[in-house]
Amino acid sequence: MSKSIKDMGWDELVQGAALFSFEGEVDYEMSQVQPEDRDYAETNSRNAYVGDWRVEKPVFNKDFCIDCQFCWIYCPDTSIIARDKKMIGVDMDHCKGCGICVEVCPTNPKSLLMFNENTDNEEALTQWPEKSEEKGE
């Protein structure tokens, strides 16, 4: 598609309202190629933004992370970025701030915590709690 779908008139849209996830022909195996190496089409929701849904955001502190990947498997919004068995960070364009990742984090103190959306990440890291004596739930 050369023209952006947002600029098209109703009679220029693809018949059957087909939406394409990728540009051109996909000649690689989808299950083997990580998202950064894929050629996403404008109509893929990866190019959309839901970051403004958040009231609170998860902040990742890599000092305590044990790369268990609980956050990765339980994230409903495909927002936890894991590469080479390591947790790298949170995709803030797609995170809706549900807080599941914080809830399932098993470390003490947690390696992910919710902070107000307007809090600076650096500042949030300075407010990180100490290791608590109480055993987690």
């Binding site: 996830s21 989808m30 299950s31 083997q32 190629v33 990580q34 998202p35 893929n44 929701s45 990866r46 190019n47 959309a48 933004y49 839901v50 849904w53 790369d67 268990c68 990947q69 609980f70 990765w72 498997i73 339980y74 994230c75 409903p76 919004d77 495909t78 927002s79 894991a82 590469r83 080479d84 068995k85 995709d91 364009d93 797609h94 995170c95 809706k96 701030g97 549900c98 807080g99 599941i100």
Partner: peptide, 25 residues
């Protein structure tokens, strides 16, 4: 879970299911 996490995602974010919806999990 570590080896599972190397999977290339086939379901993208920015769908509009509620925050915390189990469907997408």
């Amino acid at each position: 879970l570590k080896s599972f996490s190397t999977a290339a995602e086939r379901f993208e974010g920015s769908h509009v299911l509620c925050p915390g919806c189990a469907h997408s999990i």
